[in-house]
Amino acid sequence: MTQWLTGARDDPAERAHRVVAAALRAAYAWSVRKDRRDAMREVARMTGVVMEAHGPGRGPTTPLDLVACLRQPLGLLPALAEDPDQAIAQVVLLDGHDRLTADAYDLASEYALPVGDLGNSAQWLPTWTWMQADRIRDETFIALIEGNGQERYVASRRFLIEHPAGPLSDLRDLVSKSGVSLPRRGYTAIPDDHLHRSSGGETWWWPCAVCRWPMAVAGTTVRCRYRPHAAVYRLTEGGTARSRPRLSRVDEGRPRLTTPVARSAVDTGCVEFGVWRFVVVPGASELRVKRSLEELGAAVELWPELDRYDLRVRVGDKELKLDLKEYRSPYRLIADLRAKAPSVRILLPKTHEYQLQTLRTALPSLRVTTETKLYTEVRRALRTV
């Protein structure tokens, strides 16, 4: 009777995953309840999912009970009390103003699942709150592959990564001239919480120095929603009400990042959040690794055989096949690798090299390397060519 909720597997890890997914959807719905008439109905539906996952007498039993839990660490929910992913257990989804927290966007989004019935909520719930990352990626890649050969597919995917936001007229011209394909939803309006409105009525946005997608704006703090793109900036208004606002770096991260300049938001769009988070973000790392390997002297092919894997690296007669994995949660990565065993070596980018031992412990037969180890391997191979 609960098969529509539970699916074929129903072990504790799967129940914990459902709880996080339902909590994320409920948190988003609660955050927009003043604008969406059926938001409370969505919170109630997700309360039912959470109750089912916990079983009788455990966990929140009313929508308001669930909302109260969303303002606290998720690990306080019984289903997550013993979850090995302590990072997700520490996540709080709603802040003191009942807005989604940075961790909700950054980490909890990896736990999204199609739990329960979407109903009318499909019209306003963002895909990243209910659609698995793999499905978002697959939908995007299918749109890029359809009717295209390898060369055009690579060009289309690279275009998406290199142009995740910008003036719509410029983007239309670039698409027309290059002949690339776009995802079904194309470019959408920049989210309101990624815009700054100056006192003179001008609206501005800033591209992340790493992934080029609009950074989030919270008061005078500006930063990319993806935490590994760690630069944090303070916003300062311009000299006049209509002049361009400025950013100054306030964290102690990578000093070589260029401080972004404010751009007008008039007639500007970006790829939707899910495409950015699960296609553009890892894609930016894939392109960076490609450039670094080519600077060393290796030959690199992107997304061979219509994306069977990410990178084919050739050094003389030596060939390396690699799939870059950029998950914030190593436990979600482990679960996905168990569900679908990789056919090539897994590559962890520099920002995620700390996950290496966790992966090797959980999956001892997994072929995995890090970006640093890969460069060392390629340098050694080049010395013998």
Rank of each mutant, 00 (worst) to 15 (best):
P63K: 11
L64N: 12
L66F: 12
V67M: 09
V67L: 09
A68R: 14
C69E: 15
C69G: 10
L70N: 08
R71M: 11
P73H: 14
G75R: 07
G75Q: 08
G75S: 11
L76W: 10
L76F: 09
P78T: 15
A79L: 10
L80T: 06
L80F: 07
A81T: 14
A81R: 15
E82K: 13
D83R: 11
D83E: 14
D83H: 15
P84I: 10
P84G: 11
P84R: 07
D85R: 06
D85F: 06
Q86H: 14
Q86W: 06
A87V: 12
A87H: 11
I88G: 06
A89G: 14
V91N: 05
V91K: 02
V91W: 02
V92H: 09
L93S: 11
L94P: 08
L94Y: 04
L94K: 00
D95R: 06
D95C: 01
G96T: 09
H97T: 12
D98G: 01
D98S: 09
R99N: 13
R99I: 00
L100D: 01
L100W: 01
L100P: 00
T101D: 05
T101V: 00
T101Q: 01
A102Y: 09
A102Q: 14
D103E: 13
D103L: 15
A104R: 06
A104W: 05
A104I: 05
Y105A: 04
D106S: 13
L107E: 04
L107H: 01
A108G: 04
S109I: 10
E110N: 09
E110D: 12
E110F: 12
E110Q: 14
Y111S: 03
Y111K: 00
Y111T: 03
A112S: 14
A112W: 07
A112D: 05
L113C: 01
P114I: 08
P114R: 13
P114N: 04
P114K: 01
P114T: 06
V115E: 00
V115S: 00
V115P: 04
G116V: 02
G116E: 07
D117W: 10
D117M: 07
L118G: 00
G119W: 00
N120P: 07
N120C: 01
N120T: 08
A122L: 13
Q123V: 03
Q123A: 12
Q123L: 11
L125H: 02
T127E: 15
W128R: 02
T129F: 01
W130R: 06
M131S: 11
M131R: 10
M131E: 08
M131L: 15
Q132Y: 02
A133I: 06
D134Y: 01
D134T: 07
R135L: 15
R135N: 07
I136Y: 02
I136P: 03
I136A: 12
D138I: 05
D138N: 13
D138R: 15
D138H: 09
E139L: 14
T140H: 03
F141E: 12
I142W: 08
I142G: 00
A143N: 07
A143C: 05
L144G: 00
E146A: 15
E146D: 14
G147D: 05
G147F: 05
G147R: 09
N148C: 06
G149W: 02
Q150D: 07
Q150N: 00
E151C: 00
R152M: 13
R152F: 02
Y153V: 00
Y153D: 00
V154S: 10
A155W: 03
S156W: 04
R158Y: 07
R158L: 01
R158G: 05
